[in-house]
């Protein structure tokens, strides 16, 4: 954002120029919200940049929110749960059922991983929807870590990597049966096996891109609509009235994004479960 905060604070408050400034800021580009802004620069050796950035901050906020919520929810661990504990138990049962339905009782060992995945992705998606304070510095703008392909890809690699590592650990070379499905005639194998291998390799990509693209698209649409509102408001009394239309659009898309935030976390978690099922039983 190219807003000059100190100038705004000094100048007498003028709605028109404020809106104009806001409009300029927003119209500058719907991609600016994805900008990575270093907060605490940390560089190791040659070019290894581990700076604490706004992305790191919002990952930390997701972690902190989860920590606070679960601390609060389980502070008493009562037999008759309160509201917070009840909602935490709903999430627990939800993921627990998902794990059990896809993998059965053996899947129990993956439950903490799937649970963490769901919570982390959901909170990252969801907290990124918080509106930023107008005029605040870019580093303090709300940010969605899962709108970055590298983040979703890392998570996907974690999931598929776990499938690979656990599958090989548990079944050894038997895990390779995954690429030769049971009951396929021998002469078809040269065709099927490459397809299965490609399908397996595309899993982390599909997992990563699905989540990333959903978050990216949602935020871009929100920002574009918001830009319309600001531009229309700032362009004189004639067009001000029309600004209500993109505003309604924002409200609609925002509600949709709530759903998407949950849905994508759910999809990520359940696909991980389905892939982990392969690690448990490669000969499907």
């Amino acid at each position: 954002m190219s807003l000059d905060v100190t100038a705004m604070l000094d100048a007498p408050f003028d709605v028109a120029s404020w809106l104009l400034g806001l409009a300029r800021g927003m119209a500058a580009g719907p991609m600016e919200q994805f900008e990575i802004v270093p907060i605490v620069p940390l560089t190791f050796g040659e070019g290894v940049d581990l700076s604490f950035t706004n992305a790191s901050l919002w990952m930390l906020i997701s972690f902190g929110t989860a920590l606070l919520f679960f601390t609060w929810a389980t502070r008493r661990a009562a037999l008759v749960p309160g509201k917070a504990q009840g909602s935490a138990e709903v999430v627990y049962e939800f993921i627990s059922k998902m794990v059990r339905d896809t993998m059965g009782e053996e899947g129990r060992r993956f439950f903490p991983f799937v649970f963490t995945l769901f919570i982390f992705v959901f909170l990252s998606n969801f907290l990124g929807l918080l509106p930023s304070l107008p005029g605040s510095p870019a580093a303090a703008h709300s940010f969605t870590p899962t709108s970055h392909i590298i983040v979703t890809f890392t998570l996907a690699v974690l999931s598929v990597g776990l499938v690979l590592v656990y599958g090989l650990y548990k079944h050894g070379f038997g895990f390779l049966k995954l690429f030769a499905p049971h009951g396929v005639p021998l002469w078809l194998l040269p065709l099927i096996t490459p397809i299965e291998i490609i399908s397996f390799l595309s899993r982390p990509i599909s997992l990563a891109v699905r989540l990333f693209a959903n978050m990216l698209a949602g935020h871009v649409v929100l920002k574009v609509f918001a830009g319309f509102v600001a531009v229309l408001l700032a362009s004189g009394p004639l067009l001000m009235g029309i600004a209500i239309l993109p505003l309604i659009g924002i409200v609609g898309v925002f509600i949709l994004e709530f759903l998407v935030a949950f849905l994508q976390a759910f999809v990520f978690a359940i696909l991980t479960c389905i892939y982990l099922q392969d690690a448990l039983h490669p000969a499907h």
Partner: peptide, 28 residues
Amino acid sequence: TYASQIFWLLLTFGALYFVLSRIFLPRL
């Protein structure tokens, strides 16, 4: 920015995994 993002992601994700699997999930 990738190195930093991967680093902080693994850190926070790992921390979340740790507290959930060690404290909160057993409690719930």
